[in-house]
Structure formats: structure tokens, C-alpha cells
């Protein structure tokens, strides 16, 4: 499925959740990285190429919105899907206005998650292709 090597980064302070979701995504052939805080997320991003981030809105310390803003500043092409509970939908929507690709309501249906993940990845790859084409046609 993932033709080009592609990394998914899961960011959530609930470690059991991150572990289980990682295992499921790995089971369908994804390469998954995990972070339990916004800070850790940014550290991984600085060192590793990531295509799509699944980012929890509500985390202690640096929350999802703040993390998203920092991600978009440093890595504008990375696609972000906001993971949200019912109480934080407003924040997730704000996240989409700040450049997140979509949002997922917790507890998310796995099929839906995979679908959104694939679409986000596709968008990123298309954007990368356009950039490559533009660079190739440079005089």
C-alpha cells in the first residue's frame, strides 16, 4: 500500500492507546512512530521524515493546538489529523483552520482512521510531486 517509505507519527499521552493503535497500524504494513507529548513529537520530527501525524488535542503540558502550530512552522508539508474527544471538538476545528488536514472523534473507528490517514498521505505525496515538477521545470 505504502509505495514510498512513509512514516506515521502517533502523538497521545495515553500510552496504552498509542501502543495498541501502533500495533494495529503496523499490522497493515504502516511504519509507526510514537510520542507521548508535544515536546517528544517535535523532537522526533526534527530527526525523522514523517508524512502524517495523528495528534491528540488534549495533552498535559504543550497541548495539541500549540504542538500543531510548531509543527506547521517547522514542517509545513507534514499532514496532521487531530484526534479529539467530544469536549474538545472546537479545538480540533480550530486546528483545521490552522492547517490540520482533518479530525477524528475518539474513540475512532479503525477503518475511518485508516481512510483519513491514506487521504492525508496522498495529499502530502501529491504536493511533494508538484514541488518536484516545479523544480524540474525551473529554467
Amino acid at each position: 500500500m505504502a509505495a514510498a517509505p512513509s512514516n506515521v507519527l502517533l502523538v497521545d499521552d495515553e500510552e496504552d492507546f498509542v501502543e495498541m493503535l501502533s500495533l494495529r497500524l503496523q499490522e497493515i504494513g504502516e511504519t509507526v512512530l510514537a510520542a507521548s507529548s508535544g515536546k517528544q513529537c517535535l523532537e522526533i520530527l526534527a530527526a525523522t521524515e514523517v508524512d502524517v501525524i495523528i495528534l491528540d488535542v488534549k495533552m498535559p503540558g504543550m497541548d495539541g493546538i500549540e504542538t500543531l502550530e510548531k509543527i506547521k512552522q517547522a514542517h509545513p508539508l507534514v499532514e496532521v489529523i487531530m484526534l479529539t474527544g467530544h469536549g474538545t471538538i472546537e479545538s480540533a476545528i480550530q486546528g483545521m483552520k490552522l492547517g490540520a488536514y482533518d479530525l477524528l472523534l475518539k474513540p475512532a473507528d479503525f477503518g475511518e482512521l485508516v481512510e483519513k490517514l491514506n487521504r492525508a498521505r496522498q495529499r502530502k505525496q501529491e504536493q511533494m510531486e508538484r514541488i518536484r515538477d516545479a523544480e524540474a521545470s525551473k529554467p
Binding site: F17, P107, F110
Partner: peptide, 9 residues
């Protein structure tokens, strides 16, 4: 909801 998500996955 959080433990539910863990059970589900």
C-alpha cells in the same frame, strides 16, 4: 472513553 479506545483497538 480513553480506556474504551484501548479496549477497542
Amino acid at each position: 472513553n480513553n480506556p474504551l479506545a484501548v479496549i477497542q483497538d
